[in-house]
Computed example of a mutant assay.
Amino acid sequence: MTLLRLFLWFFALAYLLPLAISAALYFNSGSGAGWRIADRSSAGLLPPAAAHRPALVRVFAAQTVRWRGIFATHCWIVFKPEGAAAYTRYDYTAWGEPIRMNGFEADGRWFGHAPETVFALDGAEAAAMIPALRDAIASYAWRERGDYRAWPGPNSNTFVAAVMGAVPGLGIVLPPTAIGKDYPWNGRWLRRTGSGTGFTLSLAGYAGLTLGWVEGIELNLLGAVAGLDLRRPAIKLPGLGRFGLPAQTLETPEAPHRAATG
C-alpha cells in the first residue's frame, strides 16, 4: 500500500497537477479565433530565404488547436539547401495527404499560436543533413490516407521524431508536450534513443520509458510525459513543457546561440 500511495502522489503531482494548471491557463486565455480564420502568418523566426545563403534546418513546435492545446503541441520540419531561394516545410496532418509539403508558412503560426524553435542548424552541417532528411520523408511508413492517428500515434510528432531519428547521433529532443513522439515509428518497442546515448521502451505509445544522457529520464503515461534532464538541468511536465536550461545549444558561424529547447 505504501508503494501504491507513493505512485498516486507522484501521479497527482507530476501529471494531474501540471495538466490542471495547463487547462486553467488555456481557458483563462480564451479559445481565440476559430481555426478557419486563425492567424497562420509568419512569426518572423526565419530570415528571408533568398537573403540567407547557407543551408538551414529547423524543427518548430507550437501549441495545437482547440482543447488539445491544453496538453499537446504540433511539430514540423523546415529546411533549405545552400543558395535555395525558398524554404521547404513538411507537416504530418489528419486531413488530405498526411505528409503535407509547404502547406503553411515555414515559420507560420499554428492556427494562431506562435511556434518555438526546437532545433536549429545552419551551414555545412545542415547541408550534409538534408539528403538524409529527404530520404527519411520519402520512406516514412505511415504515408497513406487514414494512417494518421492523433493518439497515441502515428501523428505529426511521430513523423518528426522518425525523420530526425534518421540522422544518427543527432540528439534532438522534442518537447514533452509533443504527444506521439514516443510512438514506435520503426516498429521496435525497444530502441536506441536518437542521440545514441540511451534507450526508449514504448508500449505502442500508450506508455513508455526513456533513459539517455541527452534525452534524460522521461516517463510516458498515456502519451503524457514527465521527466528530468540531468545533463542540462530541467524538469519536464505534461501540458506545461520544459522548465530549466534548453535541451541543447547549437552554435554555427551563420546562426550563433540558436537553442534547441525541446
Rank of each mutant, 00 (worst) to 15 (best):
G123C: 07
L221E: 14
G108Y: 05
L219D: 13
V160T: 04
M1W: 08
V214N: 08
I37F: 09
S195F: 00
P48G: 00
E218C: 03
R58N: 13
I37P: 00
R192Y: 01
P184Y: 13
G180D: 14
P18N: 07
L203T: 02
G171V: 06
R192E: 03
A136R: 14
P131G: 08
G244N: 04
G44I: 01
V167Y: 02
L170Y: 11
F111R: 03
M164Y: 06
I217A: 08
G198D: 09
G187D: 13
R53E: 15
T249N: 09
S41I: 06
N28T: 15
A61E: 15
Q248I: 10
L3G: 01
A50G: 10
T73D: 15
F60Y: 15
F27A: 10
F60S: 12
H113K: 05
P18V: 03
E254Y: 14
I37D: 15
I130H: 10
W9D: 08
S195V: 00
W67F: 14
D229E: 14
M101F: 13
D135Q: 15
R36V: 11
E116H: 03
D122L: 05
G44L: 04
F111C: 04
G187K: 06
F111N: 05
R5C: 07
G108Q: 10
G108E: 11
I137D: 14
Y87S: 09
L3T: 02
G239M: 08
Y92P: 01
L45T: 08
K236R: 11
P48H: 01
A43P: 04
G208P: 05
S195Y: 00
T197G: 05
I217N: 02
A33N: 14
V118T: 05
A224N: 09
P152K: 09
L13T: 11
R40H: 01
V59D: 11
S22C: 06
L4D: 10
P47Q: 02
L228T: 04
F71S: 13
W213M: 06
P184S: 12
W35K: 06
N28H: 15
R53S: 14
V167L: 06
F27T: 09
W185K: 00
N155A: 11
R109W: 04
Y26V: 07
T210A: 00
P81Y: 03
G205F: 03
P81R: 13
W189T: 10
G241D: 07
T193M: 06
R58E: 14
G196N: 11
Y87L: 12
L121M: 12
A84H: 06
I235D: 00
E251I: 06
L211E: 02
A247F: 05
D107R: 03
A33Y: 08
L3M: 03
T158A: 02
S195P: 00
A226F: 13
G83M: 09
